[in-house]
């Protein structure tokens, strides 16, 4: 197996083909750096998605706040983080959404690999 197509469980590598696929979605999320972009999205989500040319799959994942769906549709976590921020979610909330855990369980999982572990 080459480095390029190595499978890592539970992980979607954000590589060239994914970046091609996700370009409109990531470009929209990049626009959320500005307050104007965030406000325009909130005012009319569908129209804003169309402005950037999102595919039906990407629009559906945006509408459903489906983080794993957004990743599969070519979203980069660094740009999806800006979308999450617009929604008022932090990276623990996003982790919980992706793993199907509650936010408290997700935080406990993080802790179990670090401070929780060393504290016995």
């Amino acid at each position: 197996m080459t480095e390029e197509n190595r499978e890592i469980p539970g992980t979607i590598l954000f590589d060239g083909p994914m970046s091609t696929k996700g370009y409109p979605l990531n470009k929209m999320c990049y626009s959320f750096n500005s307050v104007e972009g965030r406000e325009a999205f909130k005012a009319d989500e569908d129209a804003y998605c169309d402005k950037f040319g999102l595919t039906p799959e990407q629009k559906e994942a945006v509408r459903e706040r489906d983080v794993l769906g957004l990743l599969r549709a070519g979203g980069s976590i660094y740009y999806l983080a800006k979308f999450a921020g617009l929604l008022g979610l932090n990276v623990q909330d996003v982790g919980a959404l992706q793993t199907g855990m509650t936010v408290d369980d997700f935080k406990a999982y993080l802790d179990s690999q670090g401070r929780g572990k060393s504290n016995g």
Partner: peptide, 13 residues
Amino acid sequence: HQLDGERAGFLNA
């Protein structure tokens, strides 16, 4: 750290 995917939350102290 891993922020994305089903494996989100993985770390290796």
